[in-house]
Amino acid sequence: MTDQSYNFAYLDEQTKRMIRRAILKGIAVPGYQVPFASREMPMPYGWGTGGVQVTAACLTPEDRLKVIDQGADDTTNAVSIRKFFQRTAGVATTEATAEATLIQTRHRIPEHPLTEDQILVYQVPIPEPLRFLEPRETETRKMHSLEEYGLMHVKLYEDIARHGSIATSYAYPVKVEGRYVMDPSPIPKFDNPKLGDCPALQLFGAGREQRIYALPPHTQVVSLDFDDHPFQATKAPHDCDLCGASESYLDEVIVDDAGNRMFVCSDTDFCRSRREAGHAGRLTMQEAAE
């Protein structure tokens, strides 16, 4: 049921037009951060206001929305955002990746491959990949315009010199279509290979920083690396203890006072559907045996 005291999907039409124009320019220049006049939303900055505004500008009444945080549908902030759109847009919601037409995410790309009929909206805290090398927007904007990314390569190479490998494990920078260096939001670098040649449209919203950017479907996205130190997508060297998956990204959970651990899929929908299909992990099998 839609709350009639708000416009469809909360935002007023003029705001949506402004955001929609920014999204289209983002698509036209993949990886370039388009400034937009982000509004104060009824949730705090840093809690997904950019993603929420992009979602609000894209939703139609026919959409089926999925919201995840850390890969999970049931984390508090995911629940809160999903409720917000149920209330203000009256859209159907789902936890199943395959059934969703629009997915808003924080920090993960779902394990289930995305399709042509889907839009993935990322919540982005700091959209500027160069920000931790150069805090000034006036400078980083110049660097992007001149395609001056030497500083980023120097930083990554210093990592290799000091640690033997690149010491960035999430928000790992990528280069889009050979032009713009882009922050993929704080997804684990395990998810980076899914950014490129993705059949779904990927949109990124940073509310506090007032930026929107996009990856059209099947865009070329390359994680920055060096010939002698190629990019590696890594995960915990375990299988999921619940569904037995060996290729999914895992959360490490401390299960008792002795500090024992279990590893479970961070993508709750993926894990559940595998278990429903009869797959079992270490703990599920243990339990069945007892």
């Binding site: 039409e13 929609r20 059209p216 479907p217």
Partner: peptide, 17 residues
């Protein structure tokens, strides 16, 4: 609100593909 939402999705899809 809903007509422009549907129109935008068509426009968005056209430009993205």
């Amino acid at each position: 609100p809903t007509d422009s939402a549907r129109a935008f999705r068509a426009i968005l899809d056209a430009l993205a593909r």
